[in-house]
Computed example of a mutant assay.
Amino acid sequence: MTFRKHFTLTLHSFFFILNLARAAQIDTVQTYSTVMKKTIKAVVITPNDYQSLQGPLPVVYLLHGYGDRYDGWLKKGKGFETAADLHNMIIVCPDGNVSSWYWDSPKDQNWQYETYISKELVPYIDQHYKTIAQPNGRGITGLSMGGHGALFLAIRHQDVFGVAGSMSGGVDIRPFPKNWEMAKRLGTYAQNPSDWEKYTVMNQLHLLTPNSLALIIDCGTDDFFYSVNQELHRQLLYRNIPHDFISRPGGHTWPYWKNAVQYQFLFMRNYFSKMDR
């Protein structure tokens, strides 16, 4: 390698690292939910040069898993926030409470998280930040319970989200009737089978038409949700719904999600870029 080539590669590497090193701005906001009559926190991450930007930015809503809260990604998935600068986007981490599954619970009016995120939080973010306030400028993804929530919300609210993803998502709740406090939100499966059928992602697919929603689904081969994700993949293929499906060795772990989320952001950046053309 000549000195000139070596210098050029080194210089390019320097500026790439410098770009990643720019510190995204991280804020915690408090939003009021009218439907639940309470204040709920969310993390909002903007690019380092957000204040000097003239145009609006796309937004990705990143949902946490069961037992976690709005700052879970910051505490356990540290490093994901660099995507705000790398892809020039806003990232919002809502609070879905520890076990909401991002549903409007038919059993408890204090758990109305589908309405909160799709009809209260999204308008708040659009009013207070420079956003592309339409579906082709909004994405949503999450891990585990949040992976289920992201697909559930996006499929049911295609007027809000244009692209959606899932990492290790519990995309079919029916095989797990005694797990993760879902019975508190829906009632028991034995006594309320119709709600369990209605509130699973797998039974929302009739709402999709080809290319109505860009989709990326990722689950490790060692994950206890792998079989239901494989089935979701098969059902989407059967319905001719275009989507990306990623599977690789790995379990239901933060090392897997810290890797997976980078693919999710890249997929969404590519979607947003295509919408700009």
Rank of each mutant, 00 (worst) to 15 (best):
R4G: 08
R4M: 08
R4Y: 03
F7H: 06
T8E: 12
Q25W: 02
V29F: 12
T31A: 13
T34D: 10
I40M: 11
V43Q: 11
V44T: 01
N48P: 00
N48I: 00
N48S: 15
N48T: 11
D49F: 08
Y50Q: 05
G55L: 02
G55Y: 08
P58G: 12
G67Q: 03
D68P: 02
R69L: 11
G72P: 03
W73Q: 04
W73A: 04
G79E: 07
A84F: 07
H87M: 12
N88W: 00
M89E: 04
I91L: 13
D95P: 06
Y102H: 01
Y102T: 00
Y102S: 00
W103A: 03
W103D: 00
S105K: 04
P106F: 06
D108A: 02
N110F: 01
E114D: 04
S118D: 09
S118W: 07
E120R: 05
L121V: 07
L121A: 11
Q127F: 04
H128V: 01
Y129S: 14
Y129W: 15
T131S: 13
I132N: 05
A133Y: 10
N136P: 01
I140Y: 10
I140K: 08
T141F: 10
G142N: 12
L143D: 00
H148N: 03
I155C: 09
R156D: 13
D159S: 09
V163K: 05
G169C: 10
R174K: 12
P175S: 06
F176K: 05
F176I: 08
P177K: 12
R185Q: 15
T188F: 02
D195S: 13
W196G: 03
T200R: 09
L207Q: 13
P210Y: 08
Y226W: 13
Y226I: 06
V228T: 15
Q230M: 07
L232A: 12
H233I: 00
Q235M: 10
L236N: 09
L237R: 15
Y238F: 11
I246S: 02
I246F: 08
T253Q: 07
T253G: 03
K258G: 15
N259K: 06
V261Q: 06
L266H: 03
F267W: 03
F267D: 14
M275Q: 15
